[in-house]
């Protein structure tokens, strides 16, 4: 376990993962459940344990929609989406780790796609 990385994620998220009572409501409410290898409650639990490496390398980081359903419905105010975001930032902030590079973009576009999608994806996937 990388103590430095865990502390950094705790600071970045601003979330006290110890508040979790393991009810699983975040995972129960997550719209991206099926697409995620690690589910919201696992993000919280694994960060608490310091088991962060698997999360950093998981595609799950880019499947979270940041829709805040888990944040809104968590009975303990744990805010799992902020934990996912902190782990994702920890991943993309590493050099060469951007999830999206500009050259890929033209192929993704169509005539109707709003700019909003592009700027949001950039903010989520790159640093």
């Amino acid at each position: 376990m990388n103590k430095y990385e865990k502390d950094w994620i705790d600071i970045t998220s601003g979330v006290n993962v110890r508040k979790c009572m393991r009810c699983g409501k975040c995972t129960a409410t997550c719209p991206s459940y099926a697409e995620m290898e690690y589910h919201p409650h696992q993000f919280v639990y694994m960060v608490e344990k310091g088991d962060i490496e698997p999360l950093l390398n998981s595609e799950s980081l880019y499947k979270c929609l940041t829709c805040f359903a888990c944040v809104e419905r968590c009975p303990r105010g744990v805010e799992p989406a902020k934990v996912v975001e902190a782990v994702r930032l920890t991943a993309v902030r590493k050099q060469g780790n951007n999830h999206l590079i500009p050259d890929q973009i033209p192929a993704m576009l169509d005539d109707d796609m709003p700019q909003q999608a592009i700027v949001t994806a950039f903010r989520k996937y790159t640093k």
């Binding site: 009810c23 699983g24 409501k25 975040c26 995972t27 129960a28 409410t29 997550c30 359903a69 419905r73």
Partner: peptide, 9 residues
């Protein structure tokens, strides 16, 4: 059927 988990919606 007892299920360890929570209802989300």
């Amino acid at each position: 059927h007892y299920i360890k988990g929570m209802v989300g919606k």
